[in-house]
Design a protein around this nucleic acid. Structure first.
Lengths: 159, 159
DNA sequence: CAGGGATGCGCGTCGGTGTGCCCAAGGAAA
DNA sequence: TTTCCTTGGGCACACCGACGCGCATCCCTG
């Protein structure tokens, strides 16, 4: 299935106003509400739209510090990876975790209130992860770009 | 303003079903629809909820490859940082960009269709960024954790 | 005991949503 | 070229549900 520029406009708008009504969206895209409803339902049924979620302002919760954590394991055996991953998913301060190629085995993105809070997270969450050989943390001083969807998705219009 | 466990339950539910109606949410949280409407509006007005956005399945768009890119600049002067950041925000394949402490100046998260596509991105987007001294790319083999909101937010109930 | 804050119920209004039908455009086949 | 068929769009309508309000109640606190 190919998406035309109106589909992309719908997606672009929904990634900002997920609660927009059919008529509201229709006006912005340049369609009637019924045509838009059909397209939106198709986008959902075809899996382009996964779900609709509220975005929280993490700064309101005091989570202003982002830390990138590089982790190397003692062993790259399947058992070690499984054991590590089974625990890392439980860490409440971890928002992302990638299994990486290269020298580092895993890279985590951790959210903390401040540096002292990260010390606590390091002690209570990260240092308790199994099979870890080395942990290296880098603090993000500022977030320059933060997009849920790359702009490249909306750039191409086909029909 | 302090949030009680019902507020957290509302937020937890809205981060999954942003389009849920008041009555629907009220049933899940254990409130009447009117009480829930008041709380939800308060959460919005107080800035806890930033906005509501549709989540796209990036795999449906062919974006299955995540790359972490470490970039060091020729100079850490304010002018060099400004010049770099002004251009990196235009890169359509970049979803995140952090100014970092430590040896690396910036860390980017880039989404590509595949490794060949990343070669194109490297050539067309990354290598054209100004003041770059060194670019180092690491491919993510798998994504173990991907959360928009850390679980630590929902963990604390106060009232 | 009094008062403020939050809740729940009921109501009316409003708007969204879904359906049926018709129309226009484009492509294919005769 | 004509005709048929398919695809997508728009209009109108009716139904259902959401939403917001007012008021009584409850709890907690001072």
């Amino acid at each position: 299935m190919a998406l035309d520029r109106k589909d992309l406009a719908i997606l672009a708008e929904l990634t900002t106003n997920a609660r927009a009504s059919h008529t509201e969206l229709a006006n912005k895209v340049g369609l009637s509400s019924t045509a838009l409803a059909r397209r939106q339902k198709a986008l959902e049924d075809d899996g382009y739209i996964q779900d609709y979620q509220a975005t929280l302002d993490l700064a309101q919760f005091g989570l202003t510090t982002t830390v990138l954590v590089r982790i190397a394991l003692e062993s790259q055996s399947d058992e070690a990876l499984k054991a590590f991953e089974a625990e890392v998913v439980k860490c409440p301060s971890v928002v992302r975790c990638f299994l990486m190629s290269g020298t580092d085995d895993y890279i985590l993105i951790v959210l903390a209130r401040d540096i002292q809070d990260f010390e606590r997270i390091h002690r209570m969450e990260l240092s308790r992860l199994p099979r870890v050989a080395r942990v290296q943390s880098s603090f993000a001083l500022r977030e320059v770009v933060n997009r849920a969807v790359p702009n490249v998705v909306f750039g191409e219009a086909k029909r």
